[in-house]
Design a protein around this nucleic acid. Structure first.
Lengths: 199, 199
DNA sequence: TAAATTATCTAACACTGTTAAGTAAATGAC
DNA sequence: GTCATTTACTTAACAGTGTTAGATAATTTA
């Protein structure tokens, strides 16, 4: 029967509408703003209907996560296709990764567990700058006798911080790697950056 | 009056107990498990009492964040004090930073917006490995004619991923740096790692 | 002892995710 | 066509969340 097909198509469309509505809500008000009732409002149903399509809220997040990975993969492939040399491809791919993170900020957040909601004021907390300053000072000293500019120190500091914080969050949120690999990555990165400062 | 002092001391103690109770709850059940009523239970009061000490839940998180930064700073200083050469100091400080993140996992999470709760299954999602595989392949190719071992590729992959994901999350959650600095860090890191692969 | 202040709790509001039960609409069989 | 069954959808509820207002008990002050 053709009506069966039509109904199946409508169901599939609603499944898709739920995801679209969710992403819309999140883009407007952040992940905290996402609720089953708001999704229902958006698709003009009541909340329990959503459970006919997704077993719970987590399943919706999971589906968005999946879509995120597929979109990221597509953009990585496109970036790769624009070059022939592996070195150029790799560079382009990581820049594509970077661009994806900010173009699809909300997807990136749910894919890799990056919080933004909580404690907006933590940015302005003076205590948060103490660790920064401590390390900053040592970088300055390491540069001596050359007196590094603000920018030079800043770049080195963020390079350090990024690689270490990145490795930490990857291990906390996603499936990280082995302790041995972690240590190897850390050691090599730190000594590499130190060399790049001294040299 | 001495009783005034005693009361003030008791109040200060309760303020502290609230933080201790919060951290205990979080360590037992993660950040999602933290609620005003559970904190109240723990300190043997009812929920509204907490609002006499902290204006809202966010203020408690903020205070824990502050304590986290101070503890991290202390450990960085201790690590620094163990060495004389700036290079050795820097190395020791970043390793101390690493250790802090896992020893005080819950504090690190709230300090730097690292989620763990949501989507535990996302780790096992096959789609999450597609971007990894795409980049992995290019790293392998870049190593040619030398055929890199699993470990060699893994270390390079995680080095790339860490620095880029780290820079992204720092910019999303904490106060990042300028676009120019970001770009500089990215460019230098990527070409640095590529050089370390080829050389 | 009486009044005023402080400490604490109960009850409520508006939310959240989720489930069970009920109702209306469409579909099936005859 | 009518009747029974299934499907679609809603309302109501439960247990939980952060937060506030108002009532009550305890303590301090006069």
């Amino acid at each position: 029967m053709a009506s069966k097909d039509r109904i199946l198509r409508l169901k599939e469309e609603t499944r898709c509408n739920i995801l679209d509505a969710s992403l819309k809500i999140v883009k407007e008000g952040g992940w905290d703003a996402l609720s089953m009732r708001k999704i229902a409002d958006e698709i003009e149903y009541t909340a329990p209907i959503i459970y006919e399509y997704y077993s719970n809220k987590g399943a919706i997040l999971l589906e968005l996560t999946r879509k995120g990975f597929l979109l990221l993969a597509k953009q990585l492939e496109e970036a790769k296709a624009k070059h022939r040399l592996p070195a150029k491809q790799l560079e382009a791919m990581w820049f594509a990764y970077w661009d994806f993170a900010f173009a699809e900020k909300e997807l990136y957040q749910v894919m890799y567990g990056v919080e933004t909601s909580c404690c907006e004021m933590a940015k302005k907390m003076p205590e948060s700058e103490i660790p920064t300053d401590l390390i900053w000072d040592v970088i300055v000293e390491l540069m001596l006798p050359h007196v590094g500019t603000e920018d030079e120190v800043c770049i080195k500091y963020y390079t350090f911080w990024s690689v270490i914080h990145g490795l930490i969050s990857i291990n906390m949120v996603n499936r990280g790697t082995t302790d041995a690999t972690n240590h190897e990555v850390l050691k090599a990165a730190i000594s590499g950056i130190i060399r790049s400062i001294k040299g």
